[in-house]
Write a protein that binds this DNA or RNA. Structure first.
Ligand code: MN
Ligand code: MN
Ligand code: ZN
Ligand code: ZN
Lengths: 140, 140
DNA sequence: GTTTTAAATAGGAACAATTTTTAGTTAGTA
DNA sequence: TACTAACTAAAAATTGTTCCTATTTAAAAC
């Protein structure tokens, strides 16, 4: 998703192109680390000292509604946002919360077969494996 | 998980057997509909008019720690609890939130292969497909 | 059976994440 | 340049969950 494509998509739907909106979109859509709204907010504060957390949430939900972003809810902690909307697995540490992506062609094929058997056409998918990561296993 | 097995398991870990605790456990461990803490609380109010929501949460987390219960976090709405801890798929409506289980032998086999390829030993797993259910498609 | 005690409960306050509201500002159109 | 819908920031409200603590209770010790 390059910036011009994004701008076109926003304009199409009648959304204004503001510097804040663009900055939030660029940041989250290029992120690999499944950030929380607050993490995005804190990063952007450097460039936009007056930006509000509500604006961040609003923009994230806009991207979600446009189908460009996944919102992952968890117990105990705040939601995390993922610009990778294609089926992939999250390997998540139950202790430290670290999220790692697992995404291979073989996985996509195998998973597609399973979904086909079920006979539904999912809009979004979420595949989580919860583990204890090596680091947390060591200093348990 | 029958009631005597549960009581043994609780005693083993040094937990007291209280009527509230037993009632909450029995209710959630036999539920098929992925209830929220509040739904469990409201149902139990009939039998225990003074029961508190904090007790419900505490007991649900106890069961979770014992590995007998899954807690499913979502954006926008409260957590739901699932006594089915074996790998199965949730087919979830994005509009009304209805959750349907999909669980077949074939799925378990195929999924086990995928997990084996990754080379991890997950403690918990969560497989969600988000759709719009027939009902919500109709009266959209 | 009674006493002791550590753990659990009830109820409400506190908390944190998120959403809504409000009033002022701005991007895009004409 | 003027207009207006959409936006922004700040504050307030809301919601789900956890924390606190006086009281009660299950289970152990006597
Ligand atoms: Mn991801
Ligand atoms: Mn289930
Ligand atoms: Zn870890
Ligand atoms: Zn529905």
């Amino acid at each position: 998703m390059d910036i011009h494509h994004l701008i076109t998509k926003l304009r199409e739907k009648g959304h204004k192109i503001t510097p804040q909106r663009l900055a939030i979109c660029e940041l989250v859509l290029s992120s690999k680390d499944h950030p929380t709204a607050d993490q995005i907010y804190k990063k952007l504060k450097q460039k936009f000292p007056t930006i509000s957390l509500a604006t961040v949430y609003q923009t994230l939900h806009l991207l979600k509604d446009l189908g460009l972003l996944l919102e992952l809810g968890f117990p105990d902690c705040s939601a995390r946002f993922d610009p990778n909307i294609s089926p992939h697995i999250h390997i998540i540490c139950l202790k430290c919360g670290k999220i790692e992506d697992y995404e291979t062609e073989n996985l996509k094929e195998q998973w597609a077969k399973i979904v086909k058997d079920i006979g539904v056409e999912p809009i979004i998918q979420r595949l989580d494996l919860y583990i204890y990561c090596d680091k947390c296993k060591k200093n348990q």
